[in-house]
């Protein structure tokens, strides 16, 4: 049997694109879609992958990252599936990509107007931790009743005197819908606000698509006296590259037992080191 271009049949891709358009028209709103089976298991990025497959055209260049890395097994597998079924070229350079699929990070290089970032989402419903029923959360969104999302943050302040949510920190989109941005670090939240590119969020298991069209207002929830703060990396230096002020992983040197920091966005780090090298 001949393999279909981009794995999915044309009708499936069309349906996904149609739902994506709807999501773009209602920023931050979760649009249900008929999530397809893929040769990777649900919960491993199938929502993002379906978006990518529905969008990848002959003129695209694809980049796939997992927690900042182009070389992790997941990223490699997803990239391979996209390439095998579409033949589109791939890159690790954020600037050179037109279509970027990512898990847990927004790249350090700001998106360009011609770029689409596809985020993989395990749990798209920001109210789920306080309300288990989908029927109810739908009504809460309709009524713009987001006390539950605020209450979670309030409870963290009561228990720890600060908001402890450091990934998937809820945002208010265009003053209307509260959205779960997928488990990106808080550090990446401000990148969504008024950004130049298109951000799409796909949840395969939960069958939902969300979108942030370019220049959408995206505000992290915060209280007047407990403002939103990102993790600060201004005082730490990447051991490998000397970079500072970018999102870093805290690692432990097995030999010395020392804690050190390393830039999480590996392609960004490489580019920075190459530039450094060419100057020298």
């Amino acid at each position: 049997m001949r393999q279909n271009y981009a794995f999915l049949d044309e009708n499936s891709k069309k349906e996904i694109r149609r739902k994506t358009l709807k999501a773009i028209a209602i920023p931050g709103y979760q649009v249900p879609f008929a999530s397809r089976e893929l040769p990777i298991a649900r919960g491993w990025g199938t929502g993002g992958l379906q978006l990518t497959l529905s969008l990848a055209g002959q003129s695209d260049t694809v980049k796939v990252i997992d927690q900042g890395s182009d070389e992790s097994v997941n990223a490699v597998n997803i990239r391979k599936l996209i390439q095998d079924t579409t033949g589109v070229p791939d890159t690790i350079h954020t600037d050179a990509a037109t279509l970027i699929q990512s898990r847990h990070r927004i790249p350090e290089v700001p998106l360009k107007p011609y770029q689409i970032l596809v985020l993989q989402v395990p749990m798209p419903e920001p109210l789920r931790p306080v309300e288990p029923q989908e029927r109810v959360t739908k009504m809460l969104h309709a009524d713009k009743e987001y006390s539950g999302a605020w209450l979670r943050l309030f409870e963290q302040i009561m228990n720890y005197d600060s908001i402890t949510e450091d990934a998937d920190y809820p945002v208010l989109v265009e003053g209307r819908y509260v959205m779960a941005p997928s488990p990106i670090p808080r550090f990446d939240n401000p990148k969504m606000d008024n950004n130049d590119g298109l951000i799409l969020l796909g949840a395969g298991r939960e069958k939902k698509i969300c979108a942030l069209p370019p220049y959408t207002k995206v505000k992290s929830l915060a209280f007047e006296d407990y403002p939103f703060e990102v993790e600060s990396f201004d005082d730490v230096i990447c051991r490998q590259s000397g970079l500072t002020g970018v999102y870093m992983d805290e690692l432990i040197d097995e030999e010395t037992g020392e804690t050190y920091y390393q830039t999480n966005d590996t392609s960004y780090m490489q580019e920075a080191m190459n530039r450094e090298g060419s100057v020298k």
């Binding site: 605020w150 209450l151 309030f154 302040i157 209280f223 007047e224």
Partner: peptide, 14 residues
């Protein structure tokens, strides 16, 4: 208790 206040529009923890 805050839940009721949040629902009524308060955004000030203090």
């Amino acid at each position: 208790i805050a839940e009721k206040l949040i629902a009524a529009g308060s955004r000030n923890v203090g």
